[in-house]
Simulated assay, not measured.
Amino acid sequence: MDYIILFVNALVDLSNAMAPYILFGLLFAGILHELVPDTIVKNHLGKNSIMSVIKATLFGVPLPVCSCGVIPLATGIKKSGASNGSTLAFLISTPITGVDSILATYGMFGWAFTIYRVLTSMVISIIAGILTNFYAHDEEEQKQELKKQSTAFSLSPNIKASSEKISFSTIQTPKKEDVECTEGGCCSTESCESPKSCIGKRVVSYAFGTLLKDIASPLFVGLLLGALITVAIPENLSEILVHYSWLSYIIVIIIAVPMYVCATASLPIAAGLMLAGVSPGAAFVFLSAGPATNTVTIGVVKKMLGTRTLYIYLGTIIVGSVLFGFGLDYLLRDVSVSELVHIHEEFGIVAWVSSLILWGFVLYYMGTSNNSSYSQREEREMKS
């Protein structure tokens, strides 16, 4: 019973920590979708080239978006035509850094550590994007080809029957107001009285309809797994890492990869590890791999970009974080950090309301998805 209470508390804390940033990311993605034409995204990020990966990385570095808020943004640019490599580079570089995190890192660890963190995150992102463009872009093409074949196969028996039913009486000339509304970009059957309100409707519809519906299932699973992992982490973690210093990198990676922690919030954790005697390199591994990955993002990457891209995503972050962690230990072998800042945040009303809103949408889409799959299964059984 105690473990159930701990799990529920961890799930509530995780939801409160993630929800405001996810909702902000959804709205930001909706705004970008309206303001940035798809052609710009396709022209700059749509090619399987090194330059498109570099552009996506540079675009993501300064954005103050965490590892959960970046999910809808990455989904949005992917839907707008970005390549798998560009999407993955953006997905990695954005949560590790950010203006807020860069300033906080500078205030806590100094300019050298800050520059090292920013540059290494860019290198990891670019390498992951390039590998994806070279080794995983054909996976998406195969998926699209299979989808086209299955769609053509499912429609072929009904083509003749449907074509016989078409008559000139069914073809209607669109009304003038409908044409004007469509040209204005209004995504509803109502007249576009106010262009601003029309844009607002499209932003909300795209953010909380299209994007959130796509990530609802992996988000649900990720929250549950993240809470479970949080409960399973021992309280004397720092003592274990100090005692087994030669295993500290591996232990930190095992914990950091599935755990949710944003770039700024990871700083006091890393500072606490260093104060407890853990090497700066091991603490850096947590700062790099922690914000870049979590159970939610892992599920979304697999669904959106494919299994091969997921392996590149995890492999690049793990190997890159460990190698750069060793490099930091070498650079700071004669340096000791004397003063570190510890930050503790209490969840306010915004976090609680955001969490309730997010869970409401997730459970709604999970329910509609289950009902849809159930009705499809019933339909197949009736046909058989």
Results as ranks from 00 to 15, higher is better:
339 E>P: 06
275 L>W: 03
100 D>A: 15
230 T>S: 09
133 N>Q: 10
282 A>W: 01
94 T>H: 07
322 V>K: 03
55 K>G: 00
328 L>M: 13
72 P>R: 12
46 G>P: 09
311 Y>F: 14
24 F>N: 09
22 I>G: 06
362 V>P: 03
99 V>T: 15
376 Q>G: 04
121 S>H: 09
14 L>G: 11
89 A>G: 08
93 S>I: 15
110 G>N: 06
155 L>Y: 08
81 G>E: 06
293 T>Y: 00
54 I>H: 01
174 P>N: 14
327 G>M: 13
319 V>Q: 07
15 S>I: 13
174 P>G: 15
328 L>V: 14
1 M>T: 13
70 V>P: 01
98 G>I: 15
339 E>K: 13
68 C>M: 11
205 S>I: 14
45 L>G: 10
63 L>R: 06
338 S>E: 03
314 L>M: 13
74 A>I: 12
243 H>W: 06
229 I>H: 01
338 S>R: 08
204 V>P: 02
104 A>K: 05
226 G>P: 08
253 I>Q: 06
365 Y>I: 15
228 L>P: 00
11 L>W: 10
249 Y>C: 06
182 T>A: 11
106 Y>K: 10
345 E>S: 08
194 S>Y: 04
267 L>N: 08
26 L>H: 05
317 I>H: 01
220 F>C: 07
21 Y>P: 05
263 A>N: 09
327 G>T: 14
182 T>Q: 03
319 V>W: 03
282 A>S: 11
228 L>R: 03
26 L>C: 12
33 H>K: 09
226 G>R: 07
102 I>W: 02
308 R>Q: 06
361 F>N: 07
254 I>R: 05
300 V>T: 10
114 T>I: 09
382 M>K: 09
340 L>K: 09
189 T>S: 14
15 S>P: 00
254 I>W: 04
226 G>I: 12
334 D>C: 11
136 A>T: 05
250 I>N: 02
284 F>N: 03
135 Y>T: 10
384 S>Q: 03
230 T>V: 13
102 I>S: 09
233 I>F: 07
328 L>Y: 09
98 G>L: 14
98 G>Q: 10
326 F>K: 13
292 A>H: 02
216 A>S: 12
329 D>F: 14
240 I>N: 05
254 I>Q: 02
70 V>E: 01
100 D>N: 15
47 K>G: 09
271 A>K: 06
262 C>L: 07
220 F>M: 10
165 K>S: 04
131 L>K: 04
100 D>H: 12
31 I>N: 01
287 L>M: 07
59 F>T: 13
12 V>H: 00
158 N>D: 00
279 S>G: 08
102 I>K: 08
170 T>V: 14
